[in-house]
């Protein structure tokens, strides 16, 4: 009866000023498989882990090209991502049609962020149930943005969303200082390293479950799947998750209460960069189901 009654729609604030429906939508992202994004001075890269619902089914696409200089990777409800990326394609076409120039990445991101905000303030709508990592290249260089159903859009040097993505973030936080000067090839490998950290103990990156996309100056948005990722997977070092070993057995650790944007080391630069390799297990607190 007195269950939380402030969480039935997105037009009701809780007494503390929270919007539970929006917060729940953010949880939907964590139901999706992980995607990782990162940028150097010249390129932006996303890598994604694909899932198939059943053995005979195909793998769900995780990366969608929007324009020659722009694409998105999704975690959460794929149909919502299709709606958003179709909208982005229209925006990109319109920019090309009216102004004869590619849509700036920030404009693209804020266009969907503002759209998403509308769904959190109007009755009879639901927030989008998907998070996106958007990569693109414009006059200012390569960009990586994170889009959230709350209508938030932030630019990152490296980001990861989706199931068990905290492990990837931990990896990125450890290594992001080196990203600006990496070559495209090294950047992709770092992305795959981070993505691999999100895998459950018995899983590996394979040509079937891995997607890679990149974009840069004079490098149009390129999406690699299946056979085309084989060579990239070969570049990973042989030892699985070397950078982030897990304690065996402790796999089903207590469900974490940590939420997005609250890395343990926020604020203390030294603590995170110098963290010992085994400092990551508390990252592994998320749902392990596929």
């Amino acid at each position: 009866m007195f269950r939380n009654s402030y969480d039935n729609d997105s037009v009701t604030y809780s007494p503390t000023g929270r919007l539970f429906q929006v917060e729940y939508a953010l949880e939907a992202i964590k139901q999706g498989s992980a995607v990782v994004g990162l940028v150097s001075k010249t390129h932006a890269v996303v890598v994604a882990l694909k899932r198939n619902a059943e053995e005979l089914g195909s793998y769900q696409k995780k990366i969608i090209k929007v324009d020659n200089h722009l694409g998105v990777a999704l975690a959460g409800l794929a149909p919502d991502a299709r709606v958003l990326s179709n909208f982005l394609r229209q925006q990109a076409m319109s920019s090309q049609m009216v102004y004869k120039r590619p849509l700036a990445v920030s404009r693209a991101v804020y266009a969907i962020a503002d759209k998403a905000q509308g769904n959190t303030q109007q009755y009879g709508r639901r927030p989008y149930g998907v998070g996106l990592l958007i990569i693109g290249h414009d006059e200012a260089g390569p960009h990586l943005y994170e889009f959230l159903p709350s209508g938030s859009a932030l630019e990152y040097r490296g980001a990861a969303i989706g199931a068990r993505s905290q492990a990837a973030r931990t990896y990125l936080e450890k290594k992001f200082d080196t990203f600006p000067d990496l070559s495209l090839e090294e950047l992709i490998v770092e992305g795959l390293n981070a993505l691999r950290d999100t895998l459950a103990q018995d899983k590996e990156l394979t040509l079937k479950n891995t997607s890679i996309a990149y974009v840069g100056k004079d490098t149009p948005f390129t999406l690699l799947d299946d056979d085309k990722v084989v060579d990239w997977l070969a570049k990973l070092d042989g030892v699985s998750r070397k950078s982030n070993p897990r304690p065996t057995g402790g796999e089903e650790a207590a469900e974490g209460t940590t939420t997005e944007g609250e890395p343990a080391a926020a604020g203390t630069t030294a603590a995170a960069t110098d963290a010992p390799a085994d400092a990551a297990p508390d990252a592994d607190t998320m749902d392990t189901t596929e």
Partner: peptide, 12 residues
């Protein structure tokens, strides 16, 4: 407030 050090400084 800097919620993550992965955020691009000065952006956003």
């Amino acid at each position: 407030i800097v919620t993550s050090k992965l955020l691009v400084p000065g952006a956003n």
